[in-house]
Amino acid sequence: MDELIYKLKQEIIEALNLEDMTPEDIDENASLFGEGLGLDSIDALELIVLMEKNYGIKLQDPNQGKEIFKSVKVMAEFIQQNRTK
């Protein structure tokens, strides 16, 4: 699980162009949106693409993201359970 979390952090940094950030800077329990990493709705859509591209998970409803993207840890758990690749 820790390995997946670390890899996911790297992927998020790359996909969302979080310049000047390292995986160590991201608290796996902190919120990705709002106060936490300060991501916005376009970033959420980009994370949906990331899950499909890297893990074969297809979300149909953007509102599902609200739960899944609560934190990197929640996201990693969801990927662990649902990944097809």
Partner: peptide
Amino acid sequence: FFPSPAAFV
């Protein structure tokens, strides 16, 4: 084929 929303904008 993964259309990027961030790139499309």
